[in-house]
Nucleic acid binder design. Sequence first.
DNA 1: TGTACATCAGTGAACGCGCGTTCACTGATGTAC
DNA 2: TGTACATCAGTGAACGCGCGTTCACTGATGTAC
Lengths: 231, 231
Amino acid sequence: MFNRSRSSAETHALQPDAPAEPAPTPEAQLGPAKSYHHGNLREALIDAALELVREKGPDAFTLREVARRAGVSHAAPYRHFSDRAALLAAAAERTYSALAGELRAAAESAPAPSGALRAAALAYVQFALNHPTGFRLLFEPEARTADLDRRSAGSDVFECLRETVELGQAAGELRSGDPAELALAALSLMHGLSCLAVGEALPAAPPTPASELAAQLFDVLSRGLLLASPA
Amino acid sequence: MFNRSRSSAETHALQPDAPAEPAPTPEAQLGPAKSYHHGNLREALIDAALELVREKGPDAFTLREVARRAGVSHAAPYRHFSDRAALLAAAAERTYSALAGELRAAAESAPAPSGALRAAALAYVQFALNHPTGFRLLFEPEARTADLDRRSAGSDVFECLRETVELGQAAGELRSGDPAELALAALSLMHGLSCLAVGEALPAAPPTPASELAAQLFDVLSRGLLLASPA
DNA sequence: TGTACATCAGTGAACGCGCGTTCACTGATGTAC
DNA sequence: TGTACATCAGTGAACGCGCGTTCACTGATGTAC
């Protein structure tokens, strides 16, 4: 009834560095997806969950639908996840890692420390715009229950910003003050804009695209962050 | 089975200026809650919906549970709302009005224009902290479908901030620039902080309460907003 | 003031739905000997 | 190399659940005459 072989080739949209195919087991050479055992169902379920969230939003997340998309019976996920919430949390965790990765990459590819903070901040908004449903998933209360790994992954994002602020301060580009406070200001500003944009709650029809707004707002904030105000 | 008379005296927590009791109809003098007709079911349903949201969060919102709390059969709400989404939207609209009202009140009671902006911004966060589930309701995708009144109510909040910025600019307290842009910066910053606080997603265990964080972050932003930087 | 009647605002039974979870099961896998 | 057996990772039927919505109904209300 459900074609199991479909499940193995799902894209890892949020984790492009992960292998697109599950690691081939020896017997995989005998033919594709013939085995009774799936081989990599855990990952396939997370893939399917993310795909479902991407298409229909976090509210549409359903164990049965995820199983359907992974091509297994609806009881199979219980071999890998204790319940619905656990799978949802795993999907959120993967999304969180992707977000943190993009922030670090953006910060590292910027020339100067203050530019790094700006790049990381804009990357945050860009991630939300690129993956609106995934972004919403990150803050779904359902996905945030008793999840220690996720909490530390969330800290990753903040830590990246905080470290970048410290570098900027050391380089004399950012004004002094508690780095955590400045980082939280940048995070809050970008998180707020992201939520408004993703929730289509931006006031008035936006005269400018949200990614551009992000740059504008960051610059507003910058005049307080930069040590010397550039006229 | 369900006591209908219970429904008439629910508190209007988010709209304290509304009458605590439905306007007494002439025959109400004959005795309480004896009539077959409820008399003010529409409002009572919204009350019950807000109460339910307050206790269990927006995800627990259910037409049947709302009807149960209002003391009527589960089909009764259809006399006043076309469907579940319509009732949810009505509850959100009321919450929005309450939020906008608090912002205006805060802005008006502040002495100087720049203080008004600060007061309004902090009131936004305080509202979120006081009504976390109601705040979440405002941005529930389910509650935001085809809802013109709500969208204008959302603009109310933004308009309040924008006007306050204009006053501050006219008074020479805020630096020049598109008032909408500055207002959006303040809104985004406070909205972001509110979302993080309400979603318990603030990085690290907060060393300071969120309402204090709000003041700190606004002051960070202010150094860019204020015309003259106070040392 | 009384009566007929249209309309309003409820009731409660019923519908189909898809869900999360449990269960006994079975085919596939891998390991000890 | 072959066999017995424990374990793993699936299957599919079944459970109870509460939901949103529809329906024919009925009691209450208000209005025209």
